[in-house]
Design a protein around this nucleic acid. Structure first.
Length: 957
RNA sequence: GCGCGGGUGGUGGAAUUGGUAGACACGAGGGACUUAAAAUCCCUUGCCUAAACAGCGUGCGGGUUCGAUUCCCGCCCCGCGCACCA
């Protein structure tokens, strides 16, 4: 009997598959449906792949193999995301050219992928740094430029004063240069941008139509940051200037008590009053020196200065002082806000810091409005003992838990007196000092105990207990003995009291929070009494009629800065001519080739190293033919990866980026598989490019990936990320070398847990995966070598086991339940081991052959080598990976007996075996006689009997 | 703070629409084979218990239900992402 030796069989089949082109996809339509399965294309860095990276490809490979067996034409390509900073820095560090480093690293990666047995169509391989590829990346730049989506703008850029170089955002870690650790500064440079903001709406909306995980969709929505609001125009007091602000809460306009402009706001120069100029200048100077990181720290003390200027509130003519502060960002909205300290926490903090007035205009509304409610007037009194910092609470137990003191109030009754009366009646305390009081609060709820909807108009009051003097409680008869009076520490009061009205009072009075929710309008002229959401729309409409405002949607997302002052990227195909300005390189002159250089270090003058190559820089203007200079910036690596899935459909096209028919055959990608780390970069950029292609008529779809699947990360056994510095990296190469083989690694990658959940790599688990494959191997070898003739035996059990397993694995594969699919096969193997004792191979050779072949077919997507080897040993000549997925037969799934669980009052007490055809009456009758059940039934007649066909009988006593 | 995931034995995890909680695997314990070890094969393994067909068990507290890991309400904890976005 041959021993299972992966070292022997795995390389053999890898070579054979390559020779036979087993996994190459044909562009000729076959009439079969297609599946395009793609894993994020890897960055061939200096470090080799570890078992964490491998999981991603294992998932994609299992899915493609399964799809192929299910009768799909499958495209499963692989290539290299080769341009970008890490490769360049690796080259700078090692002294070898990026081109050479990439060649070496891709070779290594390819070897690693191959030894794992992944079935890629290598005939379509390319790297984004191939001139034949980046020629078309440049072509797309020109397309975006033609469509007005690529533009140049002067903007602030990170600058390291020690390395004398510009840094990309990713290279700035906590405000410091990642290479030398010195504090970075900002420098204004002319940059290229892609106008991704123009696509904000479509990028947001089309997320509805793709099959992506909720978390990635949420991250993208968050990043796009759509927010619907209004622009409001404020006239200046004593000047013709106007200030436009953006707000999502136009309903709070009457509560605006000042305006704030971002320090970079252009109007600041003109509106600042002469006597405030020095102060404002000083503040702007200080702000400029702050890093963005510093500016973005939350909970920072609010800073700012008054400009001396005033604006007029368009709704009530109030004079509002205009301030400037760095908590207002120039890049969002209009860079100016109206501050409503009563209903916005940031404005509240600012108003507190600078003693600015607070005008509440929204009365809080809590709970859900009900139909036809009973109206009640009431108070909520919070009593604090300032000596112990405890809060007086009434514990209603089962009737409603803990509350503060609440009570009804007559329409003409004084609020404070009502509260004091209630406190005295219910708790006996009487020496109280009023500390604070809320505005009216509107509360809706449904009183289940009385089956009635309630609407409560309440006031919250906070009292300090002056002394412990306490009288007798004076309780209504129906309150007697229903509650106890307790003193709760602040933390307990917050945790225990859950009634929405009471917690709202606590937040407003004790925690001093400002109310930023919806509610009922007050102090707002003719809008008083309206619900804030309605008032918001009305106020905007009224402003619009007077041309003082309009509805407006804002996005947080900014345009995509794509120029890099770096060497290793696709050169931006533009030419600067003194006479004709910025001129695109004519298409027939593409690619603009990256010249070979001796040193790739950034120059230090804010220009790319390419600026040091005169042969590259000096050219002629395509329009006037006069001397001109090339753009020396290169494109962000994310530009290169923004169209590669399309290129895989037609990777060798020299006339166009791709052929429309070929792209139509394969795209969009059905499953795009990778980690969640690219949620808002790559996955947003490529969606934008796809929409540009759609608008240009290059493709007939707007979303590149119909399905996106984010695999969970594999961590080291110690629970940390695998990294060289921790010394906890586990490389597949070592495991293969140790003899486990690629197949066992693949089992481990999938069996360790759900594919989309992260997991710690387990050294012991690796042994288990290998053992399992060994059992499959041994079973097959047993069949092949010990198949002596024997008396025929009943093979029904074998068939039942396998048909059940085929069904389970088939449904699991559709749902990507790889771990449970593998578990089901393990279970089948365990059962077959038991069955071979009672039904020897020779007694049912046909059934056994079918069972073992089915087993191999079910395992083929996971473990391609061992299944191929055994498949061939069983006498096949065509690859198992081109075979058909097995089909189960319904008749073997049912048995003539079934197990019925007997429950008494919902508790499992026994189980019985009955005939599958037994009726409810028969099952119930038999259950009542079961000797364990009888003990519980004790001659009682069940009040109720619940029968779930084929599952259980429940007797309710 | 906001958004998105999670919380089940010693461990990783399993459980269609509410219907036998803990599949499968790791680890542990025992046995067989062996001179012995490794490998392999078989058995046991949620907790409590001398043992059980008793009791307790899916983060915590309530609720709905004949029956809740699953549905509803409130809370706690962990991970990830975003974060002065008006």
């Amino acid at each position: 009997m041959k021993r299972y030796n992966p070292k022997e069989i795995e390389p053999k089949w890898q070579q054979k598959w390559s020779e036979d082109k087993t996994y190459e996809a044909s562009d000729d339509p076959s009439g079969k449906p297609k599946k395009y399965i793609l894993e994020f294309f890897p960055y061939p860095s200096g470090a080799a792949m570890h078992v964490g990276h491998v999981r991603n490809y294992t998932i994609g490979d299992a899915m493609s193999r399964h799809a192929r067996m299910m009768g799909y034409d499958v495209l499963h390509p692989m290539g290299w995301d080769a341009f970008g900073l890490p490769a360049e820095n690796y080259a700078i560090k090692t002294g070898i050219s990026p081109k050479q480093a990439i060649a070496e690293n891709t070779g290594r990666f390819k070897q690693q992928l191959t030894q794992m047995g992944f079935g890629y169509d290598w005939s379509r391989e390319f790297a984004s740094s191939d001139p034949e590829y980046y020629r078309w990346t440049q072509w797309f730049f020109l397309l975006l430029h033609k469509r007005g989506l690529a533009y140049q703008k002067e903007s602030l850029q990170w600058w390291c004063p020690v390395d004398k170089t510009v840094l990309a955002n990713e290279q700035v870690e906590n405000g410091k240069c990642w290479r030398c650790g010195s504090e970075v500064e900002k420098k204004s440079l002319k940059q290229w941008f892609f106008k991704i903001t123009e696509y904000a709406e479509r990028l947001e909306k089309d997320l509805d139509d793709v099959d992506w995980s909720d978390s990635i969709k949420a991250m993208q929505r968050n990043w796009i940051g759509r927010s619907k609001g209004a622009e409001v125009v404020f006239a200046m007091d004593g000047s013709d200037e106007k200030i436009t602000v953006f707000t999502t809460r136009a309903d709070t306009l009457f509560g605006a008590t000042f305006l704030v402009l971002a320090p970079e706001h252009p109007l600041l120069k003109t509106i600042t009053a002469p006597e405030h100029r020095a102060q404002v200048e000083n503040y702007l100077q200080k702000t400029r020196n702050k890093s963005d990181i510093e500016r973005q720290e939350t909970n920072r003390e609010k800073t700012g200065v008054f400009t001396g200027a005033y604006a007029i509130n368009p709704v009530n003519g109030e004079k509002l002082p205009i301030w400037t502060s760095d908590y207002v960002l120039v890049g969002y909205g209009t860079g100016a806000i109206m501050a409503v300290p009563a209903h916005d926490e940031r404005d509240w903090a600012f108003a507190q810091a600078f003693k600015l007035p607070v005008v509440p205009v929204i009365e809080p509304e809590t709970g859900t409005p009900q139909e036809n409610p009973e109206t009640r007037l009431s108070i909520v009194a919070i009593v604090r003992n300032p000596r112990t910092n405890e809060y007086l609470s009434i514990n209603w137990g089962k009737l409603g838990g803990n509350l503060f003191i609440g009570g009804g109030r007559e329409a003409n009754e004084d609020i404070v007196e009502t509260a004091k009366r209630e406190i005295a009646e219910e708790t006996g305390y009487r020496n109280l000092k009023l500390v604070a009081q809320t505005d009216r609060i509107h509360h809706h709820y449904f009183a289940h105990s009385k089956n009635v909807a309630r609407y409560i108009e309440a006031y919250g009051l906070l009292f300090d207990l002056e002394d412990e003097t306490r009288d007798e409680q004076r309780l209504e008869p129906d309150e007697q003995g229903k509650f106890t009076v307790e003193w709760l520490p602040a933390s307990a009061a917050e945790a225990v009291i859950t009634d929405e009205l009471h917690t709202t009072c606590y937040r407003l009075l004790v925690k001093g929070e400002c109310y930023h929710g919806e509610g009922i309008m007050m102090h707002s002229g003719s809008y008083d009494g309206l619900r804030s959401s309605e008032a918001r729309e009305k106020i905007v409409a009224d402003l619009e009629a007077k041309h003082l405002g309009k509805e407006r949607v804002n996005y947080k997302m900014r345009d995509w800065l794509i120029s890099r002052q770096r060497y290793w990227g696709a050169p931006i195909p533009m030419i600067h001519c003194a006479k004709d300005g910025v001129v695109p390189v004519p298409e027939d002159q593409l690619p603009v080739l990256l010249p070979d250089m001796q040193s790739y270090e950034p120059s230090g003058d804010g220009r790319s190293p390419l600026a040091r190559v005169p042969e590259f820089v000096n050219t002629t203007c395509p329009i006037c033919g006069g001397p001109a200079e090339r753009e020396t910036d290169t494109m962000d690596g994310f530009a290169c990866s923004s169209w590669y899935p399309m290129r895989f459909a037609d990777p060798r096209n020299n006339d166009r980026p791709f052929d429309a028919v070929k792209v139509q055959r394969w795209l969009p990608v059905d499953y795009y598989i990778g980690g969640a780390e690219h949620a808002v970069m790559h996955l947003l950029y490529i969606r934008m490019w796809t929409k540009v292609m759609q608008d240009e008529g290059l493709v007939d779809f707007g979303e590149p990936f119909t399905g996106l699947r984010n695999q969970g990360m594999i961590l080291a056994p110690d629970g940390r990320k695998m990294s060289k510095s921790w010394g906890n990296v586990i490389a597949p190469d070592d495991l293969i070398e140790q003899g486990y083989g690629a197949d066992a690694i693949r089992v481990m990658e999938l069996f360790i847990g759900p594919w989309n959940q992260s997991a710690n790599w387990s050294v012991e688990g690796m042994g288990g995966s290998f053992r399992f494959l060994q059992r499959v191997w041994a079973l097959s070898q047993d069949y092949l070598t010990k198949n002596e003739p024997a008396n025929p035996a009943d093979d029904i059990a074998i068939k039942q086991v396998m048909h059940r397993t085929i069904k389970k694995v088939s449904t699991d594969m559709e749902a990507m339940g790889f771990n449970t699919a593998i578990a089901a096969v393990m279970e089948a193997v365990n059962e077959l081991y038991r069955l071979k004792v009672t039904v020897p191979f020779g007694a049912a050779p046909e059934a056994w052959r079918w069972a073992i072949e089915s087993l191999l077919l079910l395992l083929a997507p996971f473990v391609p080598h061992i299944t191929e080897e055994l498949w061939m040993q069983l006498g096949h000549t065509d690859s198992i990976h081109l075979a058909k997925w097995p089909v189960y037969e319904e008749q073997y799934l049912t048995s003539d007996r079934m197990t019925i669980v007997i429950q008494i009052n919902g508790k499992v007490r026994s189980q019985i075996e009955v005939s599958s055809s037994a009726t409810e009456e028969e099952v119930t009758a038999q259950a009542k006689e079961d000797k364990k059940a009888v003990v519980y039934l004790t001659n009682q007649t069940p009040k109720k009997t619940i029968y779930v066909p084929g599952k259980l009988v429940n007797f309710v006593l």
